Amino acid sequence: MVETTVVNVIGTITYQQEIALGALADTLSQRNEITSVTYEPAENHWLQTRFAPDNTYVAFYRSGRCSIVGSNSVDHIYEIADCVNTVIRDILDFNYEPKVEISNIVATADIGSSIHLETLALELGMNHVEYEPEQFPALMYRGENYTALIFASGKVLCTGLTKMEETTKAVEDLASRLKGVK
Rank of each mutant, 00 (worst) to 15 (best):
M1V: 01
N8S: 13
N8F: 10
V9E: 00
Y15T: 08
Q16K: 05
A20D: 14
A23I: 07
L24D: 04
A25I: 14
D26L: 13
D26W: 03
T27K: 15
E33S: 13
I34M: 05
T35S: 15
S36G: 08
V37Y: 08
Y39A: 00
A42R: 04
E43D: 12
E43G: 04
N44W: 08
N44V: 10
H45L: 09
H45R: 12
Q48C: 05
R50T: 11
A52H: 03
D54E: 15
N55K: 10
Y57K: 13
V58Q: 06
Y61G: 04
G64Y: 14
I68F: 09
I68L: 07
Y78L: 03
E79M: 05
E79I: 06
E79G: 03
R89E: 10
R89I: 05
L92S: 09
D93Q: 03
D93P: 00
N95F: 04
E97W: 01
P98Y: 05
V100Q: 10
E101A: 11
S103E: 06
S103G: 04
V106I: 15
A109D: 05
A109C: 07
G112M: 10
S113K: 15
E123T: 12
E123V: 04
L124T: 15
M126R: 13
N127I: 07
N127H: 12
H128Y: 13
V129H: 08
E130F: 12
E132K: 15
E132I: 15
F136M: 05
P137R: 10
M140E: 03
G143S: 00
E144S: 12
T147I: 13
T147K: 05
A148N: 03
L149M: 12
S153P: 06
G160Q: 07
L161A: 00
L161Q: 03
E166L: 09
A170G: 06
A175V: 02
S176L: 06
G180P: 06
G180K: 15
